[in-house]
Write a protein that binds this DNA or RNA. Structure first.
Lengths: 247, 247
DNA sequence: GCAAAAGTGTTGAAGGTACACCCATGT
DNA sequence: ACATGGGTGTACCTTCAACACTTTTGC
């Protein structure tokens, strides 16, 4: 039996058997004043043509997983450096790999899922390539996504909630300067709880890596709130000393 | 271009491009009186023939990821129901997926890594198939493993340490009945810290899911210690009430 | 002056940490 | 009787949770 795949490696050592297909899928969360949203595309191609799905696609030979995820996001939704040249980078990390042989009706397809957090206002989106449309959809809207994407989304949401409690990732969903009330609303929205304003502010400021900028909110028809930012250098310093964050 | 793979799905919808190979690798931790160990195999085949590596291998079409991991473990190390018919099941969960295109010199190979915890005494091991040897190796012994397995092992160890602090997985490394001193030594060994005996016992017992069996240690030439067990039902009940574990 | 959100301290309860000696058993 | 590890309680301190009013601004 000869290797079925073109490759530059010596033929004698390549693996000569059929193999599952490999894809990446991205769960991109964003926050606006309506609540937590996820970025979905409407599929242009079969299977599940016309249905909503997570952005994603096949991993190319020679391509890293995160690289594939960013490429698919850019291609299908415009998220990334192409569409808004000054768009900041965004948080992206591996979530889980879904490998049920029946999750894709075509054939056995293993998907490495990623989860991303973006500040909606700074990232324009636009459908392209094999996406007919791309939209921010409320996390609690009823959905029936293609493949096992409802399941992947549920896992991502659980991870977001879990992680928010012990890692400073909430800032990724906010603009670089934010008010403490915005930050508190983020925690309340994502965790589905309500928090005491005084205790929240005390705790956040005691952590030491959320610092005042000296600036005030603008364009608001009431008392202007102070703006804060996440000080990553301070966070890393504290992390090295082994402190614990626990909201 | 026609699909290069044999598959039962309709040809028109399968993905007709070269794809990375897909493997699983397992980081199996165990604990004995010398300390924390990891289960390694000596490779019988190229590449890296004769070198030590994590047990693992190619995922077959139609096979789930965890299923592939358990199959490879059984084949290469004897771990699982085959070798010791009464061996208990063991903890196995997905760790991370490693996809650097250069991690395998043959060709682009993506590996889904798993991490497992077993009670060494209850699980016999025996090398087979493409493993020349299989051994428990001290975690802090100098190693130069095949592929990127040193890196995978480092990630697994970080995960074990992190997880031990907020999830009751340490019990998976101990026999079903254990003394509190054994449990404390486990935490100290894995976390690399030393803990106060009185405070440790107070805390563990206050959690409520480590319960006395009424039995005493045997075969020991000193005062016999009480035996405890992990009460999974109680743990799940407490978990549902939303308590927090923090060693 | 009123509506709307910003900002601010104290107190009591619970939990965490530090610390040293007696007990049971085998040799 | 001595060596080995098993088993126990208290005092202090830190952290967490509950709780309500004054300030600023725009209309």
């Amino acid at each position: 039996m000869s290797p079925p795949l073109a490759t530059s490696a010596p033929e004698a050592t390549t693996y000569p058997f059929p193999r599952p297909a490999l894809t990446v899928d991205c769960v991109v969360f964003g926050l606006d004043d309506e609540g937590l949203k996820v970025l979905l595309i409407e599929r242009e191609l079969e299977p599940f043509r016309g249905q909503w799905a997570l952005p994603g696609g096949f991993v190319r030979v020679g391509e890293g997983l995160e690289q594939a995820a960013r490429r698919e996001l850019a291609e299908e939704t415009g998220l990334g450096p192409g569409l808004s040249p000054h768009a900041p980078t965004f948080f992206l990390e591996q979530l889980f790999t879904f490998g049920d042989p029946r999750r894709d009706p075509r054939e056995h397809t293993v998907s490495v899922a990623f989860f991303a957090l973006v500040n909606i206002r700074d990232h324009a989106i636009r459908a392209a390539t094999d996406a007919r449309d791309a939209r921010w959809v409320a996390i609690d809207a009823p959905r029936a996504l293609a493949f096992d994407h409802d399941h992947i989304l549920a896992v991502a949401l659980a991870r977001l909630r879990g992680k928010l409690r012990y890692q400073p990732i909430g800032f990724e969903l906010l603009p670089p300067r934010f008010t403490l009330t915005e930050l508190q609303r983020l925690y309340e929205t994502v965790l589905g709880t309500s928090l005491d304003k005084r205790n929240f502010r005390k705790k956040i400021l005691a952590l030491g890596f959320v610092v005042e900028t000296g600036e005030l909110e603008e364009g608001v028809r009431r008392r202007r709130a102070r703006l804060y930012r996440f000080d990553e250098a301070r966070y890393r310093a504290l992390e090295r000393e082994g402190f614990s964050l626990w909201i």
